[in-house]
Design a protein around this nucleic acid. Structure first.
Lengths: 233, 233
DNA sequence: AAAATAGTGTCTTTAAGACAATATAAA
DNA sequence: TTTATATTGTCTTAAAGACACTATTTT
């Protein structure tokens, strides 16, 4: 509750990050364990206060580096939503600008200064255990997931999850993980080859027939959306 | 680097509104003329500082009521983006959360407390005269327009521009105004009748054959996007 | 040769694109 | 009856859905 004499409009501003990756065919989100009060010991999204000399993107990339020791050039960062509900933070009027990031499969993060731990958590597990997240981070992850799913319909950004080069099957597994559905391999392949470029290499370390490798082409935004329709469901 | 003694993260937070309507077949945005410094006398979006006891939506609706004397129940309000670049406001660190609103054709707004004037301005004219808007409101309007155009592809929210009941032609004129293109009447009609409900009335005050009236059905989000393709272009 | 995985052919179905003719009112 | 606007019919074309078979590698 605010009882002081601050002029209207003064708030404390944080930036929180919902960083997604796909590991072992499942969508994961990066969670830290809070090292400080409030919600000490609870899982939360990485984030922190905006500094005087930073814009939002810079703050987001700084937090990202601090929490994951990852250089931001390989990932995709996008502003998600701003959360300002009264009472969302017990310390007073704290507003957060949430960012969404898509990352290729990364090394396990090393906990940073404000975090007692950091780990990749499967999104479905996180969202099926409502009670445990700090602040309104459950809502942020819910909104972020919805945004990621929509991004895969209208853009080629799913390729960011795969890193530099990848096979069509690997890309399909990304879509299947994010959308939680099985896709028809033939129809999927026909569609994504419209925006992929072949690479003169093959995936050698597999069992069966070696797969061709591709990289993302210049297209970022699709003319028409990717079909999001399950085989089974 | 912190150059004053405020704790990290303290900013002043405003809410700005990009309120759109369609009048005379053209998309308009509500602009005020600033009554106070900085940018006194320049056109700007309506908006103002967040108050202690408000969340963002409440502040947006309050600003809307103050500037237009409109009740918010008939319009659609959606958070657009948060702007926090250094130097965007000469008064210091001011961050704004921009909202987007779609409104039916309204009475001419009455200037409120902070505004010397208020008017509906054609969006194309506003965006072709870069220099004149206060703060980064040119960028906000640009982003808002892009969002409105995308909304019309994936949702039925264009009906909000038309008020309660409307003809298919009136709805088509909305799409044509927002997208700046001509659409095929037959194909457009076939598509939108999928989410409209007929009303037992007709438009009587016209010249030619009276048109059937419709209202928006329960669908808000479209399974597949509206085709956004011009006849001429 | 058996197992594992990658890659392709093609028919059907759905919905958009491109047309122009007919219907119903007021003037 | 002329003018103005609304409404509808249908053929063509583009792309998704639904199939199952062939290809290339390792073991």
């Amino acid at each position: 509750m605010l009882t002081d004499r601050r002029p209207a409009g003064f708030v404390r501003l944080t930036v929180d990050l919902a960083i997604f990756t796909v590991r072992d065919g499942r969508l994961h989100v990066l969670l830290i364990e809070r090292g400080n009060s409030p919600h000490k010991g609870q899982p939360a999204l990485p984030g922190g206060f905006l500094r005087e000399d930073e814009d939002l993107e810079k703050a987001a990339l700084r937090e990202l580096a601090e929490e994951t020791h990852l250089d931001g050039s390989r990932l995709l960062l996008e502003q998600l939503h701003t959360y300002a509900d009264l009472g969302r933070d017990s310390r007073g009027r704290v507003v957060t600008v949430a960012y969404l990031a898509l990352a290729p499969d990364l090394p396990v993060p090393v906990p940073g200064s404000d975090a007692a731990a950091a780990r990749w958590a499967p999104v479905d597990e996180v969202l099926s255990s409502r009670d445990r997240l700090a602040f309104d981070h459950f809502d942020i992850i819910t909104d972020a997931l919805e945004r990621v799913r929509a991004m895969l319909e209208t853009t080629t950004h799913a390729t960011v999850f795969c890193g530099g080069t990848f096979t069509v099957t690997e890309l399909r597994l990304v879509y299947e993980a994010v959308w939680s559905m099985k896709l028809d391999p033939r129809n999927f392949s026909r569609r994504v080859l419209e925006f992929l470029e072949p690479v003169e290499e093959k995936r050698t370390d597999t069992h069966g027939r070696p797969a061709k490798l591709y990289r993302a082409g210049p297209t970022r935004v699709l003319d028409r959306p990717m079909a999001r329709r399950s085989l089974d469901a």
